[in-house]
Every structure is written in structure tokens, then in C-alpha cells.
Design a protein around this nucleic acid. Sequence first.
DNA 1: AATATGAATGTAATGGATTACATTCATATT
DNA 2: AATATGAATGTAATCCATTACATTCATATT
Lengths: 330, 330
Amino acid sequence: MATIQDVAKAAGVSVATVSRVLNNSGLVQEETRETVMEAIRALNYQPNLLGRNLRRMETRMILVLLPNISNPFYSRIVKGIEDVAHKNGYNIMLCNTDSDKMRERIYLELLKKRLSDGIILMASELSREELLELGKNYPVVQCCEYREDVEITHVSIDNYSAAKKAVNHLIGQGHKRIAMISCKNNFLSTVQREAGYKKVLEESGIEFDPDLLAYGDYGYKSGLRTAKQFLSMQDKPTAIFAISDMMAIGAIKAVRQAGLKIPEDIAVVGFDNINFASMCEPELTTVSQPKYDIGCYTMEFLIRQIKGESKSSQAIFLEHELIIRASTVK
Amino acid sequence: MATIQDVAKAAGVSVATVSRVLNNSGLVQEETRETVMEAIRALNYQPNLLGRNLRRMETRMILVLLPNISNPFYSRIVKGIEDVAHKNGYNIMLCNTDSDKMRERIYLELLKKRLSDGIILMASELSREELLELGKNYPVVQCCEYREDVEITHVSIDNYSAAKKAVNHLIGQGHKRIAMISCKNNFLSTVQREAGYKKVLEESGIEFDPDLLAYGDYGYKSGLRTAKQFLSMQDKPTAIFAISDMMAIGAIKAVRQAGLKIPEDIAVVGFDNINFASMCEPELTTVSQPKYDIGCYTMEFLIRQIKGESKSSQAIFLEHELIIRASTVK
DNA sequence: AATATGAATGTAATGGATTACATTCATATT
DNA sequence: AATATGAATGTAATCCATTACATTCATATT
């Protein structure tokens, strides 16, 4: 493996000159530049980034922690993050946390040990204290899911309004018994979506029925399970609002297995507008988040932090949209 | 940011001793060890991996190149890769290539510039020459998709037999006009799956009809489009074999949109057994690959290469399985 | 008591690239 | 002709942790 020394020797110049050529720092005579380039080609030289990174004390790598890459919700967001990163000369490292604190901490180590210049958290399980500590010392942005009790920039949508819009749509279709499939976690989005659901019921003069609120884990199976639960009730709901498309798709399956029709017997609304929402039968009404843009903004704010341009933390909310499809209207 | 020097000074020992403590190299008096540990805690010291990596000339990072993280087929494989990597003290960097050669090359740079100790290629677009060159100089393993004309270890299934098994199943159900949705690429898996399809037709005395072979891009939409094409024929097929579940799910959609029944009017078989195969309506008959194990083996062989334990390249084939569901039998 | 042994610790070189500072030398200025 | 200027290039320090080799010193061996 050739080093910069080898190149310098081969080209008959000093390492400083080679380095100047590598970094286009001007101030190198064209003739010299060519000699050096030739030596680089001849030796098939590749600068060793370990040396460069140590000296510059930066890696131009960004950690992106997400619970699970197989969750289709994240893929567009990641695309946005990646595009902005590459445009700015950064590379990203995707890390599956499995929603496991320990695993998350393993990756945080990489940041703390300087193998990454900054980190994006998609649905962190970290405690308030850990987050605070992290945000104080390193560039961090929370994406989609966030804690509002820490001073760390976050990019997301207004989940409260989004949930209200979804449930209001069902009310508009004449539904009175509306069930909700939520999740038992402490995510702000969950709290806000539940609050939005309850608020609309209240505004519509419908009493909240605890039996119509069930909990899943964002996944297909949990949607199937909880929907079955609803269907076994004497006084079945006529509509189901799930806080993830995957759970909504599970609910659709349960309804169809029970021999009921969608949306005639039971309407279903999801959340996220993943690709599959328009592939399933019937197509799913759902809340669409501007996933790609969320990713772009997230990365942009992170880069600003890395460059030391931004002083204080910011709260960014992007627009959402209710996409009405066959699972709620004929 | 504290360095090892600061710790040494604070603990009143030399940097060598601190390093020994950090690396549990024995030969450090318990008392000294504790003094050092205390200094580390007091200064909140984190070893700078840039220094360590440069010195050791390794990063314990593995690049994993895959076309698209949103393809659910890959998520289980990645899980296997990750688990084995972590068990061996490696971290992985997932990289979306978008099946774009240029993008792939950007990531290869990271390997060549020593920011990674090895690389796993999932469906590389690289030319034979590039792959050869890469395999000669760096630890590489091909996962699932591979070129057999380069001497680089690969882990996959026997796609020829798998396709034969799938089509034979359709023949067994009495089908005579069997369409295939393949892809126009040079992947060996594609070639082998097409060969398996044709072989079974031949063995069954059915003449191959070029009109029954269409091409998609593994995605849902292309399945929808090509299936519509088949359905518009006068002499429609009675079964469709797609080389990805996503395309099969698209085909299912097309069939249902045409008002036809599955499997009565048209049977559909997919390939990969992604999660959604058992979530869609009707559930999809498909070829199941041992995705998690493929990931594990891939990583194990890569680590062996990194350690310099393996001499020659190897061809590993794992068992597949045809999973029969409602899309082909009532 | 003299010497050998080896555990514990320290000193300094090392890895590769960058960069502050120093030097050289041709040209411009007076 | 003497001096100033500044482009081009070189020298050596630097980033941080690891580790080969050196040193110290207590204990064991004869």
C-alpha cells in the first residue's frame, strides 16, 4: 500500500506538495501537479483516510439511528438524509437499533469516540438525561420522533393536528364508534395522536370508550390481533384509526377474515403513507408525511450544527396531508 | 476533549500504562488500574478511535452495499450480517446504492481509503474487471447475487432448482399456460430462474411462448403493469410466476382489478417470502430463502478473510423452500 | 551476598496526512 | 544594483493511541 511518502519520493517532491495536489490547494505549479498526479497513478495511491481524519479531527461520516431498516416508513426519509449528506461531502452510516437501548449506546460510542461527526436519532429510547448530555457535547438532530423536554433540534410533523384530521374524516363519513390502535410507548407522537383522537371525539359529542383503544407495536401482527379484539365485541366499532399503516393493514386483514366489507362495514385509516398503503386491497386512507423533506431538513440542520453555524436548538414542523382512499370511502 | 495524555497526567502514570488499562493487556497492577480508571471517569475520557485505527491500521467497520434498504427482502439478511458482526466486534455501515454504479464506487472508495476493513456486495453492478480488482486487494463477499466468473466467495441459494420447484408446483396444479415475470438484468439469479422455468416447461412437454415472458424491475408497479399485459391477451395465462414477491403482489392486484379470482382463474407465485407475502390477500405462494442464515454465513466468511484465515474463494449454497399459500391452492 | 528473573512501568517511535512556518528564487521596484 | 515581494516548495510539528524496547525494582536462586 503506497503512502504519501512513496508518492513524494516517486515524484521527487515533498509530502507537502503531494498533499497540496491532493487537496487542490492551488499554489502548485501545473508542471509539478502533473508529475505528482502521474506518480499517484503509477503507484495506484489512495490517500489513507485514517491519517487524514486524525489530523483534521473529522470523519465526514454521519450516524443515522433507526429502530429497523425494514420499516418502510423510514426508507424515504433516509433517502432525503443521504441526498443532502452526499451533496455536502458526508457519508451516512445506517444503524439498526432494534429499539434496544443497549444497541443504541453501542452506536453512540462511535460518535463519542469520534468515528462520526454527528448523529441523527429517529426514534430514540434514550432517557432525558442521556439525550441532554449527548446534545450538549455533540451535533444531534431528532428526526420524526423527539422529546420536547430537551434542547435538541427536531424535525417532524404536527401529530396532534394530523390525528384530528384523520378522525374528523371518519366522523365526516358518519362514523360514531371509532376505535383506535395506538402503541404503549412514551413517544410524543403517540401521546399527541391519542390526544387528537380524543379531542375530536369530544368536539363531536362522542364519549370516549376505553374499550375502543387498543395497543400494538406498529407492526402488522399487532394490528391483526387488536382488530380481531374489536371485532369480537358485541358493539363493534364501524371504523378503526391505526397510528401506523402496518397496523392498519393488519386490521384490514382481520376485517376481511371476519367476512366484513371495507369500508361498508368497517372503515380503516392508517398513518405514514408507506408504499404498501396503495398496494393493499382496498387501498388505505392514511396520513402522509413529507418523508423525503423531513430527511433533507434533518440533515441540513445537522450539518449546520457541525459547522458551528447554528446556536440554539430549533423545532421544525412540516406539513402533512390526509390521503383519502378506498378503505374509508366507496 | 481529554486525550490519553491528559489521563496519564491526571493518574500520574505514563500513556503506555493508560493504554494497557484501556486494552486490558494484563501486566498492570490492580492499584494502578484503579487510579487510571478513576482518572478516566473524572475526565470523562473516551479513546479517540481515529488515533487507534490509524495505529492499528484497521477500523472494525464493514461496508454493506445493497440496492435499496426499502426492499424488504434485505432486512432479514442484514440482521444476520449485523448479529455476526457485533458478536465479533465489528460494526456495519449500510449503504444504499440505488443500483447505481457511480454511487457504488463512492462507497468502494471508503474501503480503498481504509475506512472499512471489508465489504459485502448484495447486488453489485460492477463489471467483472472491477470486481476482480477489488477481490484481489480487499476482503469481499458476494451475498445472494453474484458473478460466478470472478474468484470471490459468494453465499446464496440454488436459483435454478428453486425456480423449477415453483413452476413444477404450478404444473402439478394443472396449469399449462404459465407466464413468467422476470427482469432484464444480467444477474445470475435471473438467468437461472428463467432457465429453471424453461426447463420445467420442456420437461412437461409445454412449448415456451415468448409472449408469456415479460420483464419488470422487481418492484410492485412493474408487476402490476406486466400482469395487465398478460390479462389483455386473448389466450390468457392461468398462472403467473414472478421472480420477486413485490412483482407478484403487483400481479395479484392486476388480476383482482380485472375482476378475476385467485387462484381459481389465475394462480400467482412469487419469490423471496418477504413479510408482506403473508399479509396480502390472498396470501402468496413463494420461494423462501433462508435470509437470516445467508446474512450470517456471509459475514462469517468475510471475517475469515479479514483475519487472513481463508485462502481461496468459496461458493456457498443454502437450502430454499417453496411455501404454498392461498395464491395457488384453494 | 551476588546474580538472575520477571513483573510493572516508562520512553519514544510509529502509523499517514495535514499544515504552520521556513526557505528559495525569480521578478518587480526603486 | 540593492531590496522588496510573493509564488512555489520544503521541513518538521501535529493529531492520538499503540507498542517495541528500555528501565526499574522487588523477589528468588545459588
